[in-house]
Amino acid sequence: MRDINVSKVTETVKEMCIEINHVLSPDMAAALDKAATNEKSELGKQVLGQLEENIKIAKADMIPICQDTGMAVIFVEVGQDVHFNCDGAASLEDAINEGVRQGYVEGYLRKSVVDDPIIRNNTKDNTPAVIHYSIVPGDKVKLTLAPKGFGSENMSRVFMLKPADGIEGVKNAILTAVKDAGPNACPPMVVGVGIGGTFEKCALMAKHALTREVGKHSDIPYVKELEEEMLDKINALGIGPAGLGGSTTALAVNVETYPTHIAGLPVGINICCHVNRHISREL
């Protein structure tokens, strides 16, 4: 059994919140760079050039890449041989939310969370986070933070397809979601897809797929093919950077799969804008 003090979790979450809202991860920056070189439309090239300039300014002047610094989504993989030492004060969950609070308040990040979906009072510190826990072998803790902006979140979908719809049904669902998202989702997008499981499992896989490094593919041969084919098909739609037309509509399509029920084919599609923020740390 390894003891981890939750104050370490708080500190790490705080640092990640500030870093990832100002410095885009190298995989995303490289993908944007490649897109700017390959884009066919002049207007599209111009937009991609502005996005690259934006990333430089954000890092140099510590201005968030996007004003929508997101709702903090955190995946917590806890080794089963870990014990959290809370000093009799905060729970692990409180420690995570404290990290978000400190990161968003001290890091000049936007507070975009309301306390109730209908009453809608701003919590003024961007808490609470949306936290997904999993228990894994070992004595480490892996924290992955993905602050999610809602321009693209609002364009995400779940389709409960029939088994008879098969892979063609999945492809249509992805194209439908991307077409509907259009300019609203701040393209070029990253498209996270979850196929299988249950209603909530496919959505969660779609979210998790967004945290995968852009440019890395699934280990499953047909899934890798699907990712490549859908990226080509999406880019052939012509939506383009900022939705103003062009050959770069998506930077990546990341797909995760899970066993499902004999009667179902759930498909979750989580769309992310070009500011696809993801960062991991291990404790």
């Binding site: 937009v47 502005q50 996005l51 300039e53 934006n54 990333i55 300014i57 954000a58 002047d61 201005i63 968030p64 890449i65 996007c66 004003q67 929508d68 902006g149 321009g151 300019p183 701040c186 900022a242 103003l244 804008c273 070009h274 500011v275």
Partner: peptide
């Protein structure tokens, strides 16, 4: 008009 979505640092200038 549209401004470029996600270019918040650039536009702030």
């Amino acid at each position: 008009f549209a401004a470029i979505g996600g270019a918040g640092a650039l536009l702030s200038k």
